[in-house]
Computed example of a mutant assay.
Amino acid sequence: MLDLTQTPITLALLIVNVVISIYVLRSRPQLIASLAFRPERILRHGEVYRLVTAGFVHVNGAHLLVNMLTLYFFGPWLEMALGPIRYLMLYFGSELAAHGLSLIVQRGNVRYSAVGASGAITGVLFAFCLYAPFRMLYLFFAIPIPAIVFAIGFVAISLYAMKQRGPDQVGGLAHEAHLGGAIGGVLITGLLDPRAFPLFLQQIGL
């Protein structure tokens, strides 16, 4: 078990995500529509708060569990590597990057709606890949795969899925948010820690 008392930001993010998501799902499900990321509401009605609030609600328990498990395993490592303030900047910067790309891609889709911390957590995961590209990750908690191979495959699948998605399609995974979070996580980490890119290049032999 990880000692989350040593990484208070990750602990706080886990608690806030779980408490808000469970409260909304069990007691106020109607709030999901009010807090979700919706380009039409942001662009036409100025509801910019959705760029942040969408990251703290989830569609169901399984959605919440997958995101929180990923944050639990990778968040503490990044928090210790970057320090609490820079780690917090990475988390929320990745979320904004995720929703920023979604806003560009889905700006004409009035039916588009998305929730979940996936964008922010994808940024954390890709930041980890910069520091440890050959560390083994376990896909579905069972299949070992080097972090850099996972990252390349993840980007390829996200781009393919975005291309296949219909212009007015609703539901399913928010691949553009995942891709935006991944890009944001890498770029923000490079800005926060100038050693990150040289370390990555050194580890892959460039």
Rank of each mutant, 00 (worst) to 15 (best):
R41L: 14
I42P: 01
H45R: 15
G46N: 09
V48N: 04
R50Y: 07
L51V: 08
A54Y: 00
G55W: 03
A62N: 10
H63V: 01
L64T: 02
L64W: 08
L65E: 12
L65H: 11
N67Y: 05
M68I: 04
L71I: 01
F73H: 11
F73S: 08
F73E: 11
F74S: 02
G75T: 04
G75P: 03
G75E: 08
W77Q: 12
L78S: 08
L82F: 09
L82A: 09
L82V: 08
P84E: 08
P84Q: 07
L88C: 10
L88V: 02
M89K: 05
Y91N: 02
F92R: 01
G93S: 08
L96S: 02
A98Y: 04
A98G: 15
H99R: 12
G100Y: 04
L103W: 06
I104M: 13
V105K: 12
V105F: 09
G108W: 10
V110K: 15
R111T: 03
A114E: 14
V115L: 02
G116E: 08
A117W: 01
A117F: 10
S118R: 02
S118C: 07
S118K: 02
S118I: 05
A120I: 02
I121Q: 07
I121K: 07
T122L: 09
L125T: 10
L125Y: 04
A127H: 03
A127I: 00
C129E: 11
Y131V: 00
A132L: 12
P133D: 11
P133W: 11
F134Y: 14
R135G: 06
R135Y: 13
L139M: 12
F140W: 13
